[in-house]
Nucleic acid binder design. Structure first.
Lengths: 98, 98
DNA sequence: TCTGTGTATTTATATATCTATATATAATGA
DNA sequence: TCATTATATATAGATATATAAATACACAGA
């Protein structure tokens, strides 16, 4: 393990985890784990307003968790690193047992 | 994978992750990964006030992440589930690369 | 260029979290 | 019981986050 517990890395890890620590964003990541989705599709599947979805997506993109491509009017989002699913899976294993 | 992405489990996972998503608490978990510590020891190693340490420990205990035992005046805390370290390690691997 | 559709941003308000300070409780030993 | 040490809780002000509504922007087709 090269990565130290420096104040910087603790801060960065904390900020990234905090962005993940939201039900809607966890669901977005789960869905994107199955393949890319347009904002529209996410809006329907997550069940919150377009504006909220867009704001959540923006937070995740800011943290380099998602990336996107535009196809005509639509924008498709996908996980930047599929290993992120390991983290959400582990989270459920540890905290959602029953 | 038995665990579903129900609103309840998403909410619970989100709340637990959020408690982890703080630099001081990540450091506490890292330290407790090496073995139990008294509040006093954590106070010194983390470098924040006794009151703050106690409040962080309480949040973690509320989420069933830590457990404690009292020995005379001191209270020692430890990780309830050592697998939690897998989560913090993965977090650093994913988010603290550089 | 105008219109419609899809997405992003801005703004305001409500709510939650952080931190420090002060105070309270618990256990020990004199 | 009193004083001391260790830990926990309460409170308040500052800061951060969440959410909805309104608006702005981007693209495609007529």
């Amino acid at each position: 393990m090269i990565i130290k517990y420096s104040p910087e890395s603790l801060g960065k890890a904390g900020r990234c985890l905090r962005v993940l620590a939201h039900p809607a964003r966890l669901l977005i990541i789960h869905l994107l784990g199955q393949g890319e989705r347009s904002v529209q599709e996410l809006e329907k599947e997550v069940g919150i307003s377009q504006s909220s979805i867009s704001q959540h997506l923006n937070l995740l993109k800011d943290k380099d968790i998602l990336e996107s491509r535009r196809a005509a009017q639509q924008v498709f989002y996908r996980l930047k690193n599929p290993r992120l699913l390991e983290l959400t899976t582990l989270t459920r294993e540890l905290f959602c047992k029953e």
